[in-house]
Design a binder for these strands. Structure first.
Length: 127
DNA sequence: CGGCTGACTCTGG
DNA sequence: TCCAGAGCCAGCC
């Protein structure tokens, strides 16, 4: 079923599309994803992650909270698995279980990717 | 159509 | 730097 445009795609779907752009060895925060998606809050991103199936191709493990830590979930020990997944990609955790967002933080999707999606997806904050 | 669920971020002290 | 409180939307049954 071709949704055609991104604007016709459900918000969750758009969030997954952005998360899929995160390259291995890098991580992004929920707030950052929300900002890129546009018209979306950090919580919605977290909720969208929780709604992901176990066999998803979305690299949900590369999405962490603003503290640079893996967000605690209600059920399952997937959090531990998430950390191992990140470590396998070269992400290092300190004794505080925190990652260095300055080093492994995602810079955002390619400008062309944003263009390809057209309206509906806001550009990342430019400092 | 109403209600429940869920993986966050920001600001102040 | 750490802790606490408030704000908040979309999907699904």
């Amino acid at each position: 079923m071709s949704r055609g445009s991104v604007e016709n795609t459900p918000l969750y779907k758009r969030i997954y599309a952005v998360v899929r752009q995160i390259p291995a060895g890098h991580v992004a925060t929920y707030g950052q994803i929300a900002r890129i998606v546009g018209r979306c809050t950090a919580r919605l991103v977290g909720y969208a992650m929780a709604a992901l199936p176990s066999d998803t191709d979305v690299p949900w493990h590369r999405v962490i909270n603003h503290q640079g830590k893996i967000s605690p979930r209600s059920t399952g020990d997937c959090g531990i698995r998430q950390r191992e997944q990140l470590e396998a990609e070269g992400i290092r955790f300190n004794h505080q279980a925190r990652t260095d967002l300055r080093a492994v933080g995602w810079q955002g999707p390619d400008r062309r990717w944003l263009r390809r999606h057209g309206p509906g997806v806001a550009a990342p904050p430019q400092e």
